[in-house]
Amino acid sequence: MSVLPLPKAQAAADPILAVDDIVMEFPTPDGVVKALDHVSLSVRAGEFLSVIGPSGCGKSTLFNIVGGLQRGYQGRVSIGGEAVEGPHPAIGMVFQEESTFPWRTVLQNVEFPLEISGVAKARRQEMARRFIAMVGLGGFENRYPAELSGGMKQRVAIARTLAFEPKILLMDEPFASLDEQTRLLLGDKVLQIQQELQQTTLLITHNITEAVQLSDRILVMTYRPGRVKRILDIDLPRPRTSETIGSEAFGRFVAQLWSDLRDEATRGMDEQQELMRNAGRGP
């Protein structure tokens, strides 16, 4: 296990994605809230980087900024040196909320980005079937999302994003609404896909086990304003599966991460309770 203090900008070799010195503030009725405070990170090609932090640390804001959905920030996001000014074709996003199109079958959902790109029907169906099989949903092509479980819907969303063939897969707590067992099994599936495609992945999560199971590196954020607290290299051997979580080394990483996060989570909880107390007192 190695714990590295974070320099302002990561000196990573050939980063495909670079986030430099991001500051994001939101105006609120109680004044300006700083969500992100000089956050920098970089992701190398083929790497799996997770960003972990307590609720309110600005993880989802960072997700939206990297995905090009959030404007009005200071700093720079670049892909292969090119600045990201909005949604970028090199980034495929998987959202926390259930995001399949209920009026489309599994096949039509996964075909969607290819249809938008103007890929011929036969070709896009062939490609979509490949990604559906990859996420383990072969045989469900003609089902509608309403006929699937939560975990299956999230796999459809992942397959749809993969069909977009992004250089970087950006995921915001994609398993947050799933039960623990499904979450672990889906983690296996994501690992398998990531290894098969050598897919560069940036995962936003608050789940320590999930982060250790999946990541090459984990970036720990502080409670509001979100800053980079430290980065952990997870040097567990690959290929990993959900069985890896039973190992002693895995336990050490989890303990280390929790030790980093506990103070932040406690601070977040205290601040939120204080806010609620103040709100309860009224003007």
Binding site: G67, G68, L69, P87, P89, I91, G92, M93, F95, E97, E98, S99, F101, F112, P113, I116, T161, F164
Partner: peptide, 21 residues
């Protein structure tokens, strides 16, 4: 749902595609 619009944005849909699709 906002997340569906966000999916559309992430796939760089034009306003016309966003409406029809």
């Amino acid at each position: 749902r906002r997340v569906l619009l966000a999916v559309g944005q992430s796939f760089k849909l034009t306003p016309r595609q966003m409406f029809w699709k």
